[in-house]
Simulated assay, not measured.
Amino acid sequence: MSVVDSVLERVPQAYRALALRHRELIKFGVVGAITFFIDTGIFYALKLTILSPKPVTSKVIAVLVATLVSYVLNREWSFRTRGGHRTHHEATLYFIISGIGVGLYSAPLWVSRYVLHLQTPFTSRLVEEVADFTAGQIVGLLLGMAFRWWAFRKWVFPTDHEDDESTREGALAR
């Protein structure tokens, strides 16, 4: 029994069916939470040290590292009952889609900094930090995550038999 299954057993009966139906989304969300902390840690480590004048570059590097971790976790856990592509084809699609995701994650920060000029000397350091966090870690994350969830299910980890009981039973056994 997986960790998610054991947690779902403790969910009140009224919500259990809903949680089981969206188990894949819950796993994707857990992976997203893990990689959020990786992304945030690397972003601020770079932004506040060696790449302080280049916050967008810091963000891109952070997202790339988090994406590598995300691929492994999503492939081996979130979407392990899906697929059908050879590993190299799957990985290629994953990283192409994630590359688009990097742009979506970074675009709000770029707009905040270079279009809205929410940076020093145009604003205070506090406003700059709040704007960077909001644009880069919240808005960018939501845009990128929504796109990646949709694209991964559609192209990277597709399945033609979502409602096939034997597929579900096999997934529950894993």
Rank of each mutant, 00 (worst) to 15 (best):
I50F: 14
L46E: 07
R21T: 04
I100G: 15
T49W: 05
Y71W: 15
L68R: 04
T92N: 05
V60S: 11
F79Q: 05
T49P: 15
K47P: 04
V111I: 13
A62M: 12
V102D: 06
A62I: 05
T40F: 15
V60Y: 02
V65P: 11
E76Y: 10
L48T: 02
L51Q: 03
W110E: 03
L48R: 02
I34L: 12
Y94T: 00
Y71F: 15
A19W: 10
T92F: 14
P108H: 03
L20T: 00
G103S: 10
R21S: 13
N74E: 02
Y71T: 00
L46W: 05
Y71C: 11
H117D: 10
S98P: 06
S78A: 15
L116M: 13
T49E: 05
F36A: 07
K27N: 09
V63H: 09
R23E: 12
T49H: 08
H117L: 13
G83Y: 03
T123V: 12
G83K: 07
V31E: 00
G99T: 03
I100Y: 02
T81Q: 12
G101F: 08
I96K: 05
V102M: 13
L25K: 04
I97Q: 10
S106G: 07
G29I: 01
I61H: 05
E24A: 06
S52H: 13
A91G: 09
I96L: 15
I61V: 14
P55N: 04
S98V: 01
G41T: 03
L51C: 08
E24Q: 15
H89D: 11
H89E: 11
